[in-house]
Design a protein around this nucleic acid. Structure first.
Lengths: 165, 165
DNA sequence: TATTGTTATACTCTATAACTATA
DNA sequence: TATAGTTATAGAGTATAACAATA
């Protein structure tokens, strides 16, 4: 949230001009070289950016992921979806309840297995996914511009190396 | 437009060999190119690895960050600490309570401002931080080996570019 | 016996509002 | 008026146990 903490050493104790708080430079050198710390900070930026783009549609990251996978995999069930996204079956129930309540996803009885529901996008869900894909493209372009267009592929490649373990 | 729906038709319905669950390939191509998705997955790996290294010491990432900053910045107060770590003042109270309860951090009355406490590591806290630094170095080496030693600096550099916005 | 969806529960993280004592 | 610490609270995210229906 706070970007401009610079020049505090030269500044008097109390707030000057618009600066509200911390009149002290905090030494974070013990964290700045750590991968975990930088991953977390980078993700915080991404999440905030995501919220500003998707907030108007009332869609959180996990909801976008669900809608995308149900779109690409019509007929899959909640367990398969949860496994693909690393979301526990028990927690998937609430997530699908929400999306079903908003008329975006439908639970259909499975012909093959009467224990499970197959998931499908409703017409409304399809329409929203189309819009969200464009929003996502803008978000992605925004983030990638910040990383540097030349570095995008490498960043994704390095993150995937971490993922595969 | 689904890419890999391969060979599902040839596979039998029920589990084969050791495979327990999902007898279906889920197409996640709609997410794999996204920075946010890969950031999250990478961070999940890092957090699990962190837990396996730091679990024996009962230390979570935010606790390691706090101990590190209090060590490098003895005498700072809770607000400054929270601001440096993007943790709200209200939530910092519980975190410091825990560490104080474990005898790792001490709240001292501030000479300059009787509203605030200054934070310091106890002797026990200092000793633990010394140990944790070594644990962290092992974790970092582990992760960096996976990313590839040559790529470490570039990954950190790219993540920092995202952070600075 | 094992799995799917479900309920219940609990703990962490995050965010906001409001209080107190100081500044 | 504003700030530091605190309390209370609420919404997410995450994790486990257990149950009914079905495989």
């Amino acid at each position: 949230m706070n970007k401009n903490e610079k020049m505090n050493a030269q500044m008097p104790e109390q707030a000057v001009r618009g600066v509200r708080k911390s009149r002290r430079e905090v030494d974070i050198s013990g964290l700045e070289g750590l991968l975990g710390y930088n991953l977390r900070r980078a993700q915080m930026v991404e999440l905030q950016r995501f919220a500003s783009y998707f907030g108007p549609y009332d869609i959180r990251p996990v909801q976008y992921a669900i809608l995308t996978l149900v779109d690409s995999n019509p007929g899959l069930n909640q367990s398969q979806l949860g496994e693909a996204l690393d979301v526990k079956r028990a927690n998937m129930v609430t997530l699908i309840n929400e999306l079903e309540g908003r008329g975006l996803v439908g639970r259909m009885p499975s012909a093959r297995d009467r224990r499970s529901h197959t998931l499908e996008l409703t017409e409304k869900g399809h329409a929203l996914v189309g819009t969200l894909r464009d929003v996502q493209a803008k978000l992605e372009g925004d983030l990638m511009r910040q990383v540097g267009a030349d570095n995008c592929d490498q960043l994704l490649d390095l993150l995937k190396k971490l993922r595969d373990s």
